[in-house]
């Protein structure tokens, strides 16, 4: 179809102006505009990110001590499922789904699971970026953050995490708002 349209357009041109023109459909627009193509890692499925310094401090809070919180969240498997559900809910939430478009949610699922797992003392190292740089230019508002909190609450409720334990995790996350809310 695009070829037929191009042909029709060409045919409509006066003969005198029919200088050889490049067919627009063959132009590599990403190259023309200097778009850097990112290729997913064949093993992890993640897109590459600019280099940064890894540190547990990037998780943005100090972890709990002891096993009780990890247990309340169902250990590493439970945490991965809750984070997966949170991302699924948020990607389909009309209030905030736009924020997740064009984002590497494969990487997000891993790093967010690591962060929760680290904070809940469930035996993980957090390898992601700090909260400020990982949310840079996402344009997150207070209302967006509240919507995410509600989705997290739903995911934790569905996983039968006791409500006081839910709030104890939220207590670790709530002070991070200053690095996340941009506008």
């Amino acid at each position: 179809m695009p070829f037929a349209l191009a042909f029709a357009l060409l045919a409509a041109q006066p003969v005198a102006d029919a200088a050889p023109q490049e067919d627009p459909s063959t132009i590599d627009w990403e190259k023309e505009f200097g778009v850097e193509k990112k290729v997913r890692d064949p093993v992890t499925g993640e897109l590459p990110v600019d280099p940064y310094t890894q540190s547990p401090a990037n998780a943005g809070a100090t972890p709990f001590n002891g096993e009780s919180m990890a247990k309340a969240f169902g250990g590493q498997d439970g945490i991965r499922k809750i984070v997966g559900r949170l991302v699924d809910l948020s990607e389909t939430d009309p209030r905030i789904s736009d924020i997740f478009k064009n984002q590497d949610t494969v990487r997000l699922r891993r790093t967010l699971s690591e962060q929760f797992c680290y904070l809940l003392d469930a035996g993980c190292t957090y390898t992601g970026r700090d909260m400020k740089s990982s949310h840079k230019d996402l344009g997150v508002t207070r209302a967006d953050l509240n919507a995410l909190v509600e989705n997290l609450q739903q995911a934790m409720r569905e996983a039968k995490v006791p409500f006081p334990a839910q709030n104890r995790l939220l207590a670790k996350l709530a002070p991070m708002d200053r690095d996340i809310v941009e506008r």
């Binding site: 508002t141 209302a143 967006d144 919507a147």
Partner: peptide
């Protein structure tokens, strides 16, 4: 633009 009544409070 944000809706006037954004209703986004927890």
């Amino acid at each position: 633009a944000d809706p006037l009544l954004d209703g986004g409070k927890l």
